[in-house]
């Protein structure tokens, strides 16, 4: 249970960083932290105490193993998160070229 709670704390740290911070890079880091907290949550769902790695090999019975599906899900979300962060960083660099700042309160040409 405490592990899930830690997950929640990590999520809140990331959410705080996205909502409250003014620097674009810090917002991107916040998105990354949230992604990792959700990945951790997904892995924790499939975990069981004293569980084995879910590898089926010769002479081994599959007893008491952790859920492999959640691990596959986490792997997929990690890849999606990587591409998201990549697009975000590229955008941040281009925004810095155009505006000369990372401060989102100064990046406000769109109104209405």
């Amino acid at each position: 249970m405490s592990l899930y709670f830690m997950c929640l704390i990590l999520f809140s740290v990331g959410l705080y960083s996205v909502v409250r911070k003014r620097n674009i890079i810090k917002i991107i880091i916040g998105i990354g932290i949230i992604e990792y907290s959700v990945n951790l949550f997904i892995i924790l769902i499939g975990y069981r105490l004293q569980g084995r790695a879910p590898i089926l090999a010769r002479d081994q019975t599959i007893e008491n193993m952790v859920d492999p599906l959640t691990q596959a899900m986490a792997l997929t979300t990690i890849v999606i998160g990587l591409s998201l962060i990549f697009i975000a960083v590229t955008l941040a660099i281009r925004i810095y070229e155009k505006y000369g700042t990372f401060d989102i309160t100064k990046i406000r040409r769109l109104r209405g």
Binding site: V18, I27, I31, L84, A88, Y99, R109
Partner: peptide
């Protein structure tokens, strides 16, 4: 500049 700003906004919300 506007495109990038809009895209960044969209990206944060979409993420």
């Amino acid at each position: 500049a506007e495109d990038l700003e809009a895209s960044f906004k969209y990206m944060v919300m979409g993420a």
